Simulated assay, not measured.
Amino acid sequence: MEKKYTLEDLQAVIARLRGENGCPWDRVQTHESLRADMLEEAYEAVDAIDKNDMENLKEELGDVLMQVVFHTAIEEERGGFSMEDVIRGICEKMVYRHPHVFGELSVDTAEQVLVNWEKLKKKEKHMDSQTAVLKSVPEALPALTRARKVQKKAADVGFDFYESGGALEKVKEEIGELETALTQENGNIEEEFGDILFALVNVARFLQINPEFALTKATKKFINRFEYIENSALSEGKQLSNMTLEEMDLLWDKAKKELSEKV
């Protein structure tokens, strides 16, 4: 019969690893040293979702849970919060932010839920201005995701274009400013380039496109097309490094046509 494990078992495993006769690596870890691991495990879980790989998702969720238990164990050792505190905190937050389920508030749509969620969050975090709300968006988020969240929170108080056309015109304006910066000796090219990305994220928001996902798909498409032109070149006994850009462009156009037809 398969052994049953509980959250307490996982906590005991981490405690043993962190103990006096535990693992040398685990014993020296800190919140800071595990920061990258937390991000990596979360991304791997998302990757499993994108691939609809539920067996892998099960494993990756375990890795994410291990990170939660690991960070909590570090705090318990320091006399900080405990797993009980973590669980209590999230339970209280979910009950507080769902008054339409646990209280007497009435809502009809998912959109109303989100509006009320933001109001309750602002009150809970003692944010006395919308600027404080914008600043609360974590800087550790991927840049495209953070830009999207900041723009959405600014739009919550009406600071927004009326429609996607205005957002698209802003992109064109920012491209023009980059072109100008490129002609200037001290033009701030990085800043202008960032403004273009920020404006493009705004367009994506209007079109209800997640810019992070869109860029991920575009990168995957590029790799697939590059694979096609490299395989095509190899089938003709050629190396890409020995081909002209014009020759590779011809294969690229062929890849666009043939791969799009297979979709």
Rank of each mutant, 00 (worst) to 15 (best):
T30N: 02
R35V: 01
E32Q: 07
R27Y: 04
T30G: 10
I49D: 08
D53M: 11
P24W: 11
A45N: 11
T30Q: 04
F70L: 07
S33Q: 00
R27T: 01
Y43Q: 09
Q29L: 01
Q29T: 10
E32C: 01
D53I: 08
R27N: 05
K51M: 13
N52Q: 15
H31V: 02
N52I: 06
V64I: 06
M54K: 15
V68F: 06
E44K: 15
D37A: 04
V28D: 02
V68N: 05
N56T: 15
D47M: 12
N52W: 15
L34N: 01
L61T: 05
D53L: 13
L34R: 11
W25L: 11
V46H: 12
K58W: 10
V69H: 05
V68Q: 05
K58C: 13
E32H: 02
M66C: 08
L57C: 10
K51R: 15
Y43S: 11
L61W: 07
L65I: 02
A45G: 14
K58S: 08
W25R: 15
S33F: 03
K51C: 06
V28W: 06
E41C: 04
Y43W: 13
D37P: 02
V69K: 09
Q29A: 02
E60H: 07
D26G: 02
V28Q: 12
D63Y: 13
V69F: 01
A48K: 14
Q67I: 10
L61H: 04
A48P: 12
K51S: 14
R35D: 07
N52V: 12
L39T: 08
A42V: 05
D63S: 03
A42Y: 09
F70N: 11
D53K: 10
Y43T: 09
P24A: 08
L39K: 05
D47E: 12
V69R: 13
V68R: 04
A48N: 10
D37T: 06
D26F: 12
E40L: 03
L34A: 03
N56V: 03
E40N: 09
D47P: 07
V68P: 01
F70R: 09
I49Y: 09
E55H: 11
S33D: 00
P24M: 04
L39R: 07
V28E: 11
L61D: 05
D37C: 10
L57R: 14
